[in-house]
Design a protein around this nucleic acid. Structure first.
Lengths: 135, 135
DNA sequence: AAGCAGATTAGAACTGTTCTAAAAGCTGCA
DNA sequence: TGCAGCTTTTAGAACAGTTCTAATCTGCTT
C-alpha cells in the first residue's frame, strides 16, 4: 500500500499533529501492520508493551485526534465501548456478539438499494452496516 | 395493530414478567402511543411525570428485561448511551449526528445484496443499518 | 391470610471517558 | 544553540451511564 509510508512523524505533521514521542509510538503500533481494531485500553496495553510509557489519557487524546484528522474511524457496536478502526476506507463490519470481536468486510460487493432520502435539512454523512452474528 | 392490546398486565405476563405497578407504568408510557425511542434517563423522567414513583435502577432493570423478552430492541448509535426502540419489527435507523435524534425507517424498500457469509462457527443474528446524517 | 420467590429501592460501586492543573517537550527564532 | 511560548503529557480527580448490593416490599400461590 503506497501512501502508507512508514514515516510516522511526517504523516502526523501532514495531519496537523505534532509528532511527539507518544503519538509516534501510538501511530507505529496502529499503522505499522495491517488494519487494526483497537479500544483505548487495548492500545494502551500494546504501546506500554513496547516500553514507551504513555498514559491512558494520552491514548484517549490521540485516538480522538487521529479520528478527527481522518486517520482512524470510530465504530460503535456495543454500548459503553468505543472501537477505532485503522481502515478508513469504505467497508462494513461483522460483530461477534458475545465476545466483542470485530471484523471488516469490504463494501465492494455490498449494495444497498432503496434507502430513503435524509430528513429535511440534513445531508448524508455515512451509512454503517453492522452484521451481528453469534456463535 | 392487533396483538398490541392495551392490557399491559396481560402482555407482561405473556412475556414472562410479573405485572408490577412499576413495570405496568413503564409499559404504558412505552407502548401506549406509537413507536418510541427512549433512553433510561428519558423514560425515567417521563414515568416520574405520571406521578408513579419509579427508581432509575428499576427503569434499567425493566428496559433490560423488556429487551430480553423481545418487547424492545436496543439500538447502539453512539458510544456511552443506549437507546431502546419500541419498534421490534424489521427496520433501520436515521441518526442525526450532533443532536442524537433517532428516526426509524422501514426496511421494506431497502435491499442489501452481496453480504458475505458469516465467519465460520457463527450464525447471523441481525443486520443493522444506520444512516448517519448531519445538519 | 401467610409464606415465599421475585421485584423495588437508595445508594454505593464500577466502567469507560474526559477534565484539571502542573510539569515537560516541541518548534521557531534569534 | 538557547530560549520563549505554546502544545502536549501526565496522574489523578471528576464525570456519565450503568450495574450491583442488601434491605424492604409486593404480587402470587396455597
Amino acid at each position: 500500500m503506497l501512501g502508507n509510508s512508514p514515516d510516522f512523524p511526517a504523516r502526523l505533521r501532514a495531519a496537523g499533529l505534532r509528532p511527539t514521542k507518544q503519538r509516534v509510538a501510538l501511530a507505529r503500533v496502529l499503522f505499522e501492520a495491517g488494519h487494526r481494531h483497537v479500544t483505548a485500553e487495548s492500545l494502551h496495553a500494546e504501546v506500554k508493551a513496547t516500553r514507551m510509557p504513555v498514559s491512558l489519557a494520552t491514548v484517549y487524546n490521540a485516538l480522538n485526534q487521529f479520528r478527527d484528522a481522518g486517520l482512524l474511524r470510530e465504530v460503535v457496536v456495543a454500548p459503553g465501548r468505543s472501537y477505532f478502526d485503522t481502515n478508513t476506507g469504505h467497508h462494513h463490519h461483522f460483530y461477534v456478539e458475545p465476545d466483542g470481536e470485530l471484523h471488516d468486510f469490504p463494501s465492494e460487493k455490498v449494495t444497498i438499494a432503496g434507502l430513503p432520502t435524509p430528513p429535511k435539512g440534513t445531508r448524508l454523512a455515512r451509512v454503517d452496516v453492522i452484521v451481528r452474528v453469534r456463535r
